[in-house]
Design a protein around this nucleic acid. Structure first.
Length: 294
DNA sequence: TGAATTGGATGATTCGGGAC
DNA sequence: GTCCCGAATCATCCAATTCA
């Protein structure tokens, strides 16, 4: 390899090519024309003495050498971006930008206080919430359609960087004046009453509650499945149904609902953030992540 | 300061492979 | 066989940089 001919732009080109696996899209990502990036790829091949990316059915696929380069290249560029970013001062009070955040409606609800505080500190910051769909998240972030995702880190795509924010637990909710439930609930009542369940993708009737019940040889009846978390407290408040929901969803709902300790152990979850390496050193996004984590 | 070099853009073309 | 897509290449031009 002839290292004297290597410049940073070529490494950025290789990074984009490895991420997109398509010369045309990688060129668009770098704001270059396809022939210009093709020429950079030619120089990279010349320098590394390896084809690096070879034509495939759709786009290009990396050679073994290119795959070996991918991780160290990512780390090196990340370090370089950090060095540059440290010198850029971000002023939240004056910053005018729009940040796209993917999250479930529960996650939006859970982060409400922090969002209000962030918008107080950065009044010109516009947050664009969009529905979280994990399988498309990496592509959305690579295309710049999503800057940050609020999700459980263990379900985040492996290509993304993650940071846990807080642990969440489940509580049982029932309406005040419920004919059966008053102040507490036992396993018999939990299994006898009709539940409202959330299935973000729609149509599902099983969740962590069913896993916990199955572990003790019991089951429940889900009478209503909804794709939205936010509607569940309202449904429970207006019916004799009950629900197991993340605690932060109903923290301010005790006037309308009884919030009860579950009679079984339902495994909670960790809510966190996920973001793409390309925005890791972005000062505004780094500031936002730091605020969400505070 | 002007020539040489470098890198990128544009437009056109070729080539290979897949879909129909 | 034809069409489409994507990669690669070529010719030409332009702007920025380097160097004598």
């Amino acid at each position: 390899m002839d290292g004297t001919r290597l410049d940073l732009n070529l490494l950025l080109a290789l990074e984009a090519l490895l991420a997109e696996r398509n010369v045309t899209r990688a060129a668009a990502r770098l704001n270059l024309s396809q022939p210009a990036l093709s020429a950079q790829l030619r120089r990279l091949r010349d320098i590394f003495g390896d084809p690096l990316l070879v034509p495939a059915r759709r786009g290009v696929i990396p050679t073994q050498r290119a795959l070996e380069l991918q991780a160290p290249l990512r780390e090196s560029l990340r370090a370089l971006r950090s060095v540059v970013a440290e010198r850029v001062h971000f002023d939240p009070s004056a910053a005018e930008l729009t940040v796209a955040v993917a999250a479930s409606d529960y996650a939006q609800c859970a982060m409400l206080d922090r969002i209000v505080e962030i918008q107080r500190k950065a009044p010109k910051l516009r947050l664009s919430w969009r529905q979280l769909y994990a399988p498309e998240l990496v592509g959305q972030m690579e295309r710049g359609e999503v800057d940050l995702a609020i999700m459980t880190p263990n379900t985040a795509p492996k290509q993304l960087l993650t940071l846990p924010l807080f642990d969440e637990r489940y509580v049982v909710i029932a309406r005040h004046g419920h004919p059966v439930i008053e102040g507490s609930i036992d396993v018999e009542q939990l299994c006898a009453l009709t539940h409202v369940a959330v299935s973000p993708r729609g149509g599902g009737f099983a969740g962590p509650t069913d896993v916990a019940l199955a572990a003790i040889g019991r089951q429940r009846r889900v009478g209503l499945s909804t794709a939205s978390f936010l509607i569940v407290p309202e449904l429970v408040a207006r019916s004799d149904h009950i629900a197991l929901v993340p605690e932060r969803l109903v923290l301010r709902k005790s006037r309308d609902l009884q919030i009860l300790e579950p009679p079984i152990t339902v495994t909670g979850f960790t809510l966190g953030m996920a973001w793409h390496e390309r925005s890791d050193a972005e000062p505004a996004l780094a500031w936002l992540r730091n605020e969400l984590d505070s």
